[in-house]
Nucleic acid binder design. Sequence first.
DNA 1: AAGGACAATGTAAGCGCTTACATTTTTTTA
DNA 2: TAAAAAAATGTAAGCGCTTACATTGTCCTT
Lengths: 370, 370
Amino acid sequence: MGTNGLKETCCHSAMMACFQNLPEDRNPLSTQAPPTLSDVARHAGVSTATVSRCLNFPDKVSAATRDRVLSAVSELGYTPNFGARVLAAKRTNTIGAIIPTMENAIFARGLQAFQEELEKHGVTMLVASSSYSQDIEEQQIRTLVSRGADGLLLIGAHRSEAIYDFLERQQIPVVLSWVYRPDLKPFSVGFDNCIAMEELTRKVLELGHRKIAVISAPTANNDRAYQRVLGVRQALQSAGLDPAELLIRETPYGIDEGAEAFREIMAVQDRPTAVLCGNDVLAAGAMRQAREMGLSIPDEVSVTGFDDIQLASIVSPALTTVHVPHRKMGAEAARTLVRLVKGERDVSKSLRLDTTLHLRGSLGPVTGRT
Amino acid sequence: MGTNGLKETCCHSAMMACFQNLPEDRNPLSTQAPPTLSDVARHAGVSTATVSRCLNFPDKVSAATRDRVLSAVSELGYTPNFGARVLAAKRTNTIGAIIPTMENAIFARGLQAFQEELEKHGVTMLVASSSYSQDIEEQQIRTLVSRGADGLLLIGAHRSEAIYDFLERQQIPVVLSWVYRPDLKPFSVGFDNCIAMEELTRKVLELGHRKIAVISAPTANNDRAYQRVLGVRQALQSAGLDPAELLIRETPYGIDEGAEAFREIMAVQDRPTAVLCGNDVLAAGAMRQAREMGLSIPDEVSVTGFDDIQLASIVSPALTTVHVPHRKMGAEAARTLVRLVKGERDVSKSLRLDTTLHLRGSLGPVTGRT
DNA sequence: AAGGACAATGTAAGCGCTTACATTTTTTTA
DNA sequence: TAAAAAAATGTAAGCGCTTACATTGTCCTT
């Protein structure tokens, strides 16, 4: 005890740079308006056009003037005025993204990759989240457009015709993600939810499961959820089973919701031996509930997810799920959108990414025990 | 089999509204420039000033004209030009947020709440992530400022004086979050990382643990991480123990990183009985590794986290962690920032939120077994 | 050495909106 | 009912930047 550098108390460690103790009025600059392009021009003894060119097309200007201008810029601490630039150039270099939620990790990875890619092209990202509500999403779309978003990333394809019309009239390039829909006019960069889920279901059937339940997000306004359920149905049908017997429980995405849905599903007489969840979060909830009910996974009941977020490899047993290439999807969507915004109509087209089945401990063969 | 609505195949379900099958050139409007304020004015037979007023201060205009203008607006499908508005009004109604990462859930909840609150005030959020790099963060700050962010949300307090100077010169209101630092000039809305961790450590000591290890994020550029470690040290010292004996392993945030760090820590001769992790993600990694090594939690080793994200209640056993009021923090930060941007200097001040200990299964008393 | 080609720079017209101020219309007051 | 006050509307000057076009300066070419 009583050692070295421990004098610092919680709130006063010396490691911080900050402006504590500075008198309010210390900085005379702080009351002045920020410098403008013409201030820089005057300072450098050139015209505003030259300064502008120097900033936007450096090689259209002689080295000598460039140096003079740039040093004027840094001397004055000049930053271009965004509004003016937008107004004059008619481009904001901003792209909007509207995702259903930021609260769980489902969209986070993809969005991060999306942003990183945009950044490489000098584009900034505006984000809004719609809480899985179609109305909120439409309002967000209008907001982002009026904020000057040059393009928009949207999740899924299901929305009103009115809003698609609006986007078309405003000539805003749109990329749909998390779905692959080459039949639609807006480009999509994503995967086929239906096929992915069909593949998973086929595997489940192979393992002998016949009594199957699904916990899905509400399918009414969510085409991803809808397609996933459809995938299960199609797999059943192809296997000669009656899709009508499929037990489906819809509930909002969430751990607790997943748990509750699982509880209800397992309360029926003839318990399913496999519960396919619409995403990993629901699955995690289901698994928690199974533990609580003393049901062993996968011996007594198998559980699967969708998305393959971190959660999936952390739960015990690890979750069998459909791996979605989130980062790649985000990056590709960004690339497509940037191209569209630049007006390269021909180059881009819808891109289909593959999902892969990740088989882990939560899915096992049907056993006698139940 | 062979039931009802199953005709729809994956990619052609009828539920979607879209613009498939529309000829490219169908819409004559699409080549015209979007309508401007003066188009609306002409259409409604008033001046541009009246239209502007009508949109911004509806009650400064008579009901009759208002109706006329509004119907002109909707007839023409007018949307204000963002750049022009910004240029003229000198406000973007946009606030920027720079977070270390979007990839895990740590900042997601807070950010979501932040955005929702901003939205209530008609403010849009710009997001960027810095990948925990100080340089990237500073560049992002400059970008967002030049994009016209009216204010900025930053995580933590540790950054260069140069950038704080820049923000002050640009007169950009800043709110720091995830920390509580009333000693600094920028307002902070957050909690005291040090005290929170000190409290947790005290609890760990109470349970008899003496050999303690810490897995922390790199503390060099991360004041939250630094303060958390400091908290552990202070608790040890208060308990009359020698903080120098504390085993500290720094590693980037991540599940795998946490696992690896845990492996290394448990490889030493005199194994610790408790491993305190800098956040829940690291802790989840540590727990996974413990399982792999056949170490029982909490009998052979206790593990704790920080943040209380969803993960914490999903892992098994559930994770003892420090609960951070993410949503409240985000919302309050937004409120403070909005007030600052509006120029209400006096009203706002730094806000300290309380963290609470969530004791769960991953932390237990020291046992003979080791 | 004169003419032309090209590079470097300057001039100035907007971009679409807000808002101070001027003007007109309506309402109130005596 | 006329004058004063208040409300509604119009006029027009920017906001800070980009860019088409005009001008000037440089360097070849013949």
